[in-house]
Simulated assay, not measured.
Amino acid sequence: MPRRLRLVELDFAATAPVRLAFTAELAAPPGDVYRALAEDVESTPDWFAAVAVATPHEGGAGRTVRLRGGIGFRETIMAAEPGARYAYRIDETNAPGVTAMLEDWVLSPAAGAGTRVTWTMAVDGPAPCRLALRLARPGVRKSFRDAMRCLDRRLTPASRP
């Protein structure tokens, strides 16, 4: 059953008790990466294997996401800066233990026309939840890296082997 989480602001990405942050470099330009993250929400499952369904709602001011395995999120977009940043707060979830959550995608130019993507998952919850998230770091890192490779192949067909 979904439950409401504590509403947090953008600064939570830097102050959360648990912060999982990962970086990848893509050949695709920042504008293309931003469009895939923020505007083409429904195609997210095509490149992020952990995501089963993603749909925008409230005229693009929010999203509803369901992961493979059944965890779901109802989100509010907190920052939408084309080519630079996309962040959303999770307002409701059925994920056990989570009391507050925000995800922040920061895009910056990389070598050539590429993009450096930094994704921060900021979470709060009781001690067992925090421990579980810290232990999940390697799996979350792998999921992120695989997603970024897949997204880059999707956005830069010439880079495909």
Rank of each mutant, 00 (worst) to 15 (best):
A27L: 10
A27W: 08
A27R: 12
A27G: 11
A28P: 00
P29N: 03
P29C: 02
P29K: 01
P30Q: 07
P30A: 03
G31I: 03
D32A: 15
V33C: 02
V33H: 00
Y34E: 03
Y34V: 03
R35H: 04
A36Q: 07
A36C: 04
A38I: 03
D40I: 01
D40L: 01
E42Y: 01
S43N: 04
S43T: 11
T44A: 13
T44I: 14
T44R: 12
T44H: 14
T44G: 03
T44V: 15
D46E: 15
W47M: 05
W47K: 09
F48K: 13
F48R: 14
A49L: 12
A49G: 11
A50D: 15
V51C: 12
V51W: 07
A52Y: 01
A52Q: 14
A52T: 05
A54Q: 09
P56C: 03
P56Y: 01
P56R: 11
P56L: 04
H57K: 09
H57F: 08
H57N: 11
H57A: 06
E58I: 00
E58Q: 09
E58A: 09
E58H: 08
G59V: 10
G59A: 08
G59R: 11
G59H: 10
A61G: 10
G62S: 09
G62M: 09
G62L: 06
T64L: 10
T64A: 13
T64E: 15
V65A: 06
R66I: 07
L67P: 00
G69M: 07
G70H: 07
F73C: 00
F73Q: 00
R74N: 01
R74E: 11
